[in-house]
């Protein structure tokens, strides 16, 4: 398997007038091509920080990271990022929203436009291309946000609690949906979530982070017996609840 992203001794200390926050410490991790990795951990343990570092937006205070063997020093077209909320711009149509990345990268050509149309068609949003975001349902908006990310053709997708703003039913459906799209487009994905079941249902590996400062506590390889693996069918697999219990214990959540 080809290594896609490698993190070497990543550490992050935030500075503020009230003191220093040690958000991440000593993170070593390799994510392989076309892998789906989920990162779980208690809230405030540095999951979003870790994704921001991987996106190239936030330089770590120690360690370094490689993408395809090369050092990441800033944002890259090879990395796509999906945030918790869809952040579709209300003043743009769905099509214009989807084209945002290309527009910023000055890469709008007849070909890329055709590709946008194709992706919108494939994922059932073509009829809505001239609508505004507030005319779409939450699930459709999230799908539009994913297409916006896919348009610049990244090799890796970073998803930061990308589904947690949705209600439970929609969330299951959207998870199924987006998982399908990511697999079909052959992307490597790193998903941050605080939902253990969601993590197991999608991941090849689940990375458990400790409380702050976040360090890697344990990594679970997820092997489920099901015919065609999708997030929903994963939940039916017999091993599912064993993983759930182990990870639950690992995270040691007290209320």
């Amino acid at each position: 398997m080809k290594a896609k992203v490698e993190l070497h001794n990543i550490g992050m200390k935030y500075q503020s007038p009230n003191g220093e926050i040690n958000a991440l410490e000593n993170i070593n991790l390799t994510v392989y091509d076309r892998e789906f990795v989920c990162i779980v951990g208690p809230s405030g343990c540095g999951k979003s920080t870790l994704l921001s570092i991987m996106s190239g937006l936030l330089p770590p205070t120690s360690g370094y990271l490689l993408l395809n063997g090369e050092k990441i020093t800033g944002t890259s077209k090879k990395i796509g990022y999906m945030l918790q909320k869809d952040h579709l711009f209300g003043w743009r149509t769905i099509l214009e929203n989807v084209l945002l990345g290309l527009e910023i990268q000055k890469a709008i050509t007849p070909e890329t436009k055709a590709r946008a149309a194709e992706l919108l068609k494939t994922y059932g949003l073509y009829e809505f291309r001239n609508k505004y975001p507030n005319q779409l349902s939450g699930g459709m908006r999230q799908r539009a946000a994913l297409i916006r990310t896919l348009m610049t053709d990244p090799e890796i997708l970073l998803l930061d609690e990308a589904f947690s703003a949705l209600d439970y039913q929609t969330r299951l459906a959207v998870t199924e949906d987006i998982y399908g799209i990511i697999k079909q487009e052959n992307k490597t994905a790193i998903l941050v979530t605080h939902d253990i079941a969601e993590a197991i249902s999608m991941a090849n590996r689940v990375i458990c982070l400790s409380k702050r400062p976040g360090t890697i506590k344990n990594i679970y390889e997820i092997n489920l017996t099901c015919t065609k693996r999708t997030p929903l069918s994963s939940r039916e697999a017999p091993e599912f609840r064993h993983y759930f219990q182990s990870i639950w214990k690992e995270l040691d959540i007290h209320v």
């Binding site: 937006l57 944002t75 890259s76 952040h87 711009f89 003043w91 945002l100 910023i104």
Partner: peptide, 25 residues
């Protein structure tokens, strides 16, 4: 801030943050 982050992730410059997000918003 996240809308601004979105533009930056696509490699947007400060000027693009201004024209694509701040002014219309």
């Amino acid at each position: 801030q996240e809308k601004i982050k979105l533009v930056q992730i696509f490699g947007g410059s400060r000027f693009q943050v201004l024209t694509k997000v701040l002014l219309p918003a």
